[in-house]
């Protein structure tokens, strides 16, 4: 079962706290949630009440976001009222893209353009300032509650006190009320990522690339309808990275999912994706969605083909035109 994903006009502006009172942000903006240690107040099950219907969002004037007054509290919005909340750091502006069921879509953009922010919004881990996300016919928060989403992050973020196998079991152990029928057993997932003989090891005993594969198996444990990957290869060396690309392709062929893959690597994007969504530098805006016509299954060697080179060049030129 794959989900389609509809990202409609999603924008995100982070409230930038007054410099003198950094603690105030920790207390006041738990939904931002990514600052370590301050996310305590943001439990799951937050109300999605501040999500606006798309049409309402479109009717809001852009100036509300006050992009040029970043960090300056007390900017005046329409009507002369002080709108300090609206000023801030604009990370994403009006992202609209649909992902088809079973599609592998990459989001490509320079560092700091809001890729992680977009991924967290789609995963129900952060709220958009405006716009909406639908996963199948559900909101992101609802999809998350039903365990329909698997996440892989840039850091493996395994629990070091659990064995490899127990890490892969973790999603099943958590929140048992929601069970996913037909999910692949954790031991088989370890076979899929070629780590079967390391089931009893602890994460600290594995290489980075192996940890990242455990992370992938863990994300697949619930047989998610949507797989979110945030630069999963970014912290790997070039050789491991190249191997991991083809590993991922192989795994994806075996367990087809709708994938939203975030990367700043053009090779990653072109090699893996059905389509590549190119984002501009901050605030991230959608510049183009490029279909990649390379045949599947894609195996080692495809990166030397003429088709790859031309697709690479097309995406490369788009990205670079945007960067300058």
């Amino acid at each position: 079962m794959y989900a389609s994903v509809s990202i409609a006009n999603v924008s995100k502006t982070f409230p930038v706290p007054p410099v003198a009172a950094p603690a105030a942000r920790a207390a006041g903006a738990p939904a931002a949630g990514s600052a370590p240690g301050t996310a305590v107040a943001a439990g799951p099950g937050r109300t999605p009440g501040n999500r606006l219907p798309v049409d309402d969002v479109r009717s809001q004037p852009d100036t509300l976001l006050a992009p040029d007054s970043a960090g300056i509290p007390g900017t005046r919005g329409p009507g002369g009222r002080k709108r300090s909340v609206q000023s801030g750091l604009e990370a994403l502006r009006g992202i609209t893209v649909d992902i088809r069921p079973g599609e592998f879509l990459s989001v490509l953009g320079p560092s700091g353009c809001g890729k992680t922010t977009l991924l967290r919004i789609v995963g129900g881990l952060a709220e958009p300032t405006s716009g909406s996300v639908r996963i199948g016919d559900r909101s992101a928060a609802e999809a998350q509650r039903r365990k329909l989403i698997g996440c892989v992050f840039q850091e493996p973020a395994l629990l070091p006190w659990r064995t490899v196998l127990d890490n892969v079991r973790l999603p099943l152990a958590v929140n048992r009320r929601v069970q996913r029928a037909g999910a692949t057993p954790p031991a088989e997932l370890l076979q899929l990522v070629r780590l079967a003989e390391f089931a009893g090891y602890y994460p600290g005993q594995l290489s980075r690339g192996m940890q990242q594969r455990v992370g992938l198996a863990r994300a697949l444990a619930l047989d998610p309808a949507l797989l979110l990957m945030d630069e999963p290869f970014a912290s790997l060396d070039e050789i491991t990275r190249e191997q991991m690309r083809f590993e991922l392709l192989r795994i994806w062929e075996a367990a087809r999912k709708t994938v939203l893959f975030v990367t700043h690597s053009i090779v990653d994007a072109v090699l893996l994706s059905d389509r590549v969504a190119v984002l501009s530098a901050r605030p991230g805006r959608l510049r183009a969605v490029v279909p990649i016509g390379l045949e599947r299954p894609r195996v080692a060697g495809v990166e030397h083909s003429a088709e790859f080179t031309s697709a690479y060049r097309r995406v490369h030129d788009l990205v670079m035109a945007e960067a300058c």
Binding site: S34, P36, P44, R120, R145, E155, A157, V178
Partner: peptide, 11 residues
């Protein structure tokens, strides 16, 4: 923070 995100992502 990644582990926290992951746990939250599986509700």
């Amino acid at each position: 923070p990644g582990a926290l995100d992951f746990l939250r992502s599986v509700s």
